[in-house]
Design a binder for these strands. Structure first.
Lengths: 154, 154
DNA sequence: CTCTGTGCAAACGCTTTGCAACTCC
DNA sequence: GGAGTTGCAAAGCGTTTGCACAGAG
């Protein structure tokens, strides 16, 4: 189990691993949710209230983390950007998302990932050839109603 | 070849097929692009300049069209919502998108769609069972660099 | 006359930027 | 001291809303 696998990336880029940055990474590493910048900001206020970290810093830190590949950025269609560590302490864990359009609940699923991965690789290769595209990433999401929201609607 | 396949939907909903609405549908039906609300607004000004259609009307019309299933809404990560007719005059034509992260160019592709569809159906069914989700739609997109942007970067 | 549709301006919500102060090497 | 970092306030930008007016049935 590697600790602080991101340290090297910071040093390599000549960036400082300051306490606001550590706190933000810490929050992301301890949640299974997909917090928005404001969610993170509020958590900082609640749990790290000695510090006075501004929302701007949260945005700026997240941008850095995204650029370094430490954090992934997602849009689930609710008007705010959401963030997720790209790698847990136990290593990389590829998954996609299932989004409830009613309550915003998000489920990370890994089922079918192998099959998806195989098809995606094949598709990426085919598209790259046909359209001369250099593909860097893919996005797969399913939208629908979670169990609770189905019940509440009936 | 059906003409104005959307008329029925308007009448059914008790909505009027006004000239701004017709113009917006017309623009969408004549482009292969994925215009934003502002793109549509500007096209209206240029090509239908007798009329004085406001941006608000464009937004409101698009919302109606999306709710009626006549238009699909997409987010390609550039901060603006993009729109596309759900059906051409020659009928429904399922495709996904290849997005250039450099210039914003978008390619509609239909290659591999059958395989994708088959896998998606299977995945949807599996996810629905496992997580008791009622899945309404999926999203698949590939991001990368188009041919031109690869050349410009080297 | 009534109900829908419309344009304008203002409001909104999330995100980014300008700037001066601050910190760490 | 110089480069990176930060908080605050203000600006930016796409989108939505309030409101009074116009227009169709």
């Amino acid at each position: 189990m590697r600790k602080c696998w991101w340290r090297g990336k910071f040093e390599g880029a000549g960036l400082r691993l300051t306490s606001p940055r550590l706190a933000i990474i810490d929050i992301l590493s301890k949640t299974t949710k997909h917090p928005s910048a404001e969610d993170i900001y509020l958590t900082l206020r609640q749990k790290y209230n000695n510090d006075n970290i501004g929302l701007t810093t949260v945005y700026r830190t997240l941008e850095i983390l995204v650029n370094m590949g430490i954090v992934y950025k997602f849009d689930f269609g609710d008007g705010r950007t959401r963030y997720e560590l790209s790698e847990g302490p136990d290593g990389f864990h590829h998954h996609h998302h299932l989004v409830c359009t009613e309550c915003g609940r998000i489920i990370d699923y890994t089922d079918f990932i192998d099959e998806e991965k195989e098809l995606l690789d094949r598709t990426e290769k085919g598209l790259a050839e046909k359209y001369h595209f250099q593909i860097h990433k893919h996005l797969i999401q399913f939208y629908g109603l979670c169990e609770n929201c189905q019940l509440n609607k009936s």
